[in-house]
């Protein structure tokens, strides 16, 4: 196991390096930063001074080396717009995004797995068909459209729920959270549903398919032949087997959730990192864009690694292959 993790970690370092190069090159390709940094009425001398100051006269590889050196020290540049370290700026926004992401993941698990199990055990029941129909819908419509429709229905026409912002927050360890106040909770409902919709549909489908497969399997028939009670068959024999792929998918979905928070946060004006990146893109705030992308790359690598480890601990068959 340790060998496996070490090997994966070294692969990850290479991957981060490659990605940092791609991100650096990519962002380098967006226009000439001098135009954004230098006032239009600056003299040629002032212009040169700024070019030298930012090292923009150096060859590309040297600039990249500097960028990498700074990045290793946790310095990904300063935001043009806010004149703050880009990383710190993002770090302030991370808790809001994570709050949404965890809440939607929770909703997905709490709702998706039981519904999927139900639909898997009674594939022909009318209620199962309804569940599957709704999940097919949630699976295919664009998330931003669903968000808009919810805003239109619940905020504009019915006036039940607020459509933007985090509402009242309470600080835990200095980090503001919404879920501890009634007002904050009300602000969370729509964004969380919006962010969960796709995942929920996916998990329902996966759980149902897995359940149907397991229910047909010989070992469930054998469990019945052993005279086990139905509850135990469902909760131990069926669920344990179905949960292995679901856990994997949920882990990977967590990364997708962070990415899709871009959409949800834009619609509901939720002050997380997704909203920040969209705002930064619109004003070409390059250090923030670069910092966000690097953070996302690292996060995805970590998530993939963690998911692989979880998978191999959950499935005893994988564990054995590891020992060999």
């Amino acid at each position: 196991m340790a060998v496996f993790i070490l090997r994966r970690l070294s692969q990850s370092v290479v991957l981060v390096l490659v990605m940092s190069m791609l991100v650096f090159l990519g962002v380098f390709a967006i226009g000439d930063p001098i135009n954004t940094l230098v006032a239009p009425d600056a003299t040629e001398e002032e212009r040169q001074a700024i070019v030298v100051h930012f090292g923009l006269d150096k060859p590309l590889y040297e600039q990249y080396g500097r960028f990498l050196g700074n990045a290793l020290r946790g310095d990904l540049g300063r935001s043009f717009k806010f004149n703050e370290p880009a990383l710190a700026l993002i770090a302030q926004r991370v808790p809001a995004t994570l709050e949404l992401a965890f809440a939607s993941l929770l909703l997905t698990v709490v709702l998706g797995i039981p519904l999927g199990l139900y639909a898997g055990f009674r594939p022909n029941a009318r209620s199962s068909r309804l569940i599957m129909g709704v999940s097919a819908f949630g699976f295919s419509v664009p998330a931003f459209w669903l968000g808009l429709m919810m805003v239109m229905l619940f905020s504009v026409f019915l006036g039940w729920l607020p459509a933007s912002g985090r509402g009242t927050t309470v600080a835990i360890l200095g980090i503001p959270v919404s879920f501890l106040t009634w007002d904050g909770l009300k602000h969370m409902i729509l964004p969380v549903i919006n962010l969960a919709a796709f995942k929920l549909s996916l998990i329902i489908r996966l759980t149902r398919a897995g359940t149907q497969e397991v229910v047909m399997s010989d070992y469930v028939k054998y469990a019945k032949a052993k005279g086990l009670r139905n509850g135990r068959i469902v909760l131990v024999h069926v669920l344990k087997n179905t949960l292995i792929p679901i856990t994997t998918v949920l882990g990977l979905e967590f990364g997708r959730t962070i990415a899709f928070a871009v959409v949800t946060e834009t619609i509901f004006a939720w002050p997380g990192m997704g909203k920040l990146i969209i705002d930064s893109i619109s004003v070409l705030d390059r250090p923030v864009i670069v910092a966000y992308l690097m953070l996302i790359v690292v996060m995805f690598i970590v998530i993939n690694l963690v998911v692989d480890i979880i998978y191999s601990t959950l499935d005893p068959r994988m564990r054995l292959e590891d020992q060999r």
Binding site: A223, G227, K240
Partner: peptide
């Protein structure tokens, strides 16, 4: 159900398929 597995037991063809792969033999 009470009869099955106690008074009347069963053994199936392929033990690799009948034993649950993710549970210990003890369980």
């Amino acid at each position: 159900r009470r009869m099955r597995g106690s008074r009347m037991a069963a053994i199936f063809q392929d033990p690799l398929m009948t034993l649950n792969p993710v549970l210990r033999i003890e369980t």
